[in-house]
Design a protein around this nucleic acid. Sequence first.
DNA 1: CGGTCTCTTGACGGAGTTCAAAGCTAGTGG
DNA 2: CCACTAGCTTTGAACTCCGTCAAGAGACCG
Lengths: 195, 195
Amino acid sequence: MYPLLRQNIETTLGHSISDAVFSEFADCVFPKTFDKKTILAEEGKICRYSYFIEQGACYSYLIDQKGEKHAIQFALEGYWISDLYSFFSDRKGIYTIETLEPSQMLLLNKQNFQKACELCPEIDRFFRLLAQNALVAFQYRLAKTNSEDAESRYMEFSNLHPKFNQRIPQYLIASYLGIKPQSLSRIRKELVPKK
Amino acid sequence: MYPLLRQNIETTLGHSISDAVFSEFADCVFPKTFDKKTILAEEGKICRYSYFIEQGACYSYLIDQKGEKHAIQFALEGYWISDLYSFFSDRKGIYTIETLEPSQMLLLNKQNFQKACELCPEIDRFFRLLAQNALVAFQYRLAKTNSEDAESRYMEFSNLHPKFNQRIPQYLIASYLGIKPQSLSRIRKELVPKK
DNA sequence: CGGTCTCTTGACGGAGTTCAAAGCTAGTGG
DNA sequence: CCACTAGCTTTGAACTCCGTCAAGAGACCG
């Protein structure tokens, strides 16, 4: 049952876990499939789940005053995604989450998340490590956004996330990098001779 | 002993903790005072501590290829600060942390951090919540950096962090917002009539 | 094969940068 | 306690990277 989820937990913890612990947690999630372009969470509504992707791809984004979308996070197989602000605080969400492909997800709701954390310190620790890793990554991304130009950010992105680069449309990658699709197109054009 | 630290833990957890639990954790940290402009952690060196500020102020920054500093985080009384990438991974740090004022800190090293997390699930959870909150904040800051102009970001910053705005020099706030001090000066000039 | 979505390309515009200089402020030492 | 200096802030003018607007080419899907 859910081998990818188990692998995700064990890799994050740095050690294997007992069948008992895993099956207890596995009982907290339930599988669901979604079509392409399905909205999993929406700005202004409470985001009730954290999603673990078994198969597929999706992304979260913020919609600005002009109605433009700004990609925040991409997620493929083995990734967790959610509007954590909403999920943790039970307030109206600020991001929208949408599938990019038909996807198989495991859904974890708030009650089960808290129950699992309370009943099992190993799971609590797993989510601590998950949050720590994500925090380090976002801090680094913000630092790079404020210190490097769009070309360097794109090169680092495509080295760091070759799989995103293959499966995610270019205009969303541009948005993730904080630039317009036209600019990314021009950057890629300049980059060809350098490579 | 360390009332601000205890308050920080209890506020984050959302409930009070026993004297036994707190004193166990209090034994894991030790106090130290620093002069103004002291380097607490340096790019290229392993960051061995997380710092909790009892009194004072400091900030972390990244140094780019041109040698320019980019502020990542400010911290006043009641805040934790560290190069979490280095602290968690034991690899060479990517940020530098420096005091802005003479400061009283509580230092927590990696061994004690892990020991405390292992011995006491409540402390493990506390650090999960701390990481979750910081993650939500950094994600939001990145989203705003990619979707709003410098003027909006500055207004939100000064509403959200009036204390930072008072105690932190303007050129560092500019850097935190991802702009140059000259630009922030012009933005503030434009803002006066609006207010 | 028609329509929509995505990517590319060009010309122009604007938010923020760069360079430079002057004014202001706070800390230091005589 | 004042004078001096170094660091911070402000202002001006020219510049640059990326955004905007627009149009066309290509790709994908029903």
